[in-house]
């Protein structure tokens, strides 16, 4: 089905072709310990974690 006529001829709001992002699931699934990897991400955003400079 086509888009509604109101969309035709209007100025677009997405200025350029959208680049494909890395798939998040692919970052977590591979590897010998996917659960541990997910836990690593959780640890990164745990309140109280401090940066080391």
């Amino acid at each position: 089905m086509p888009l509604r006529a109101a969309r035709i001829g209007r100025v677009g709001v997405v200025g350029a072709p959208v680049a494909r992002a890395a798939v998040v699931g692919a970052a977590i699934r591979p590897g010998p310990a996917p659960v541990a990897k997910a836990a690593v991400v959780g640890a990164a955003i745990t309140p109280g974690r401090r940066r080391r400079i």
Binding site: R10, G12, V13, V14, P17
Partner: peptide, 26 residues
């Protein structure tokens, strides 16, 4: 509000793999 224009379709679809379906949310 139908903000997206027909011109946006190709730009948004550039990220898609052939044979796929995608939902676009603004």
């Amino acid at each position: 509000a139908e903000l997206l224009a027909a011109d946006d379709v190709e730009h948004l679809a550039a990220a898609m793999q052939p044979g796929s379906v995608a939902g676009v949310l603004v």
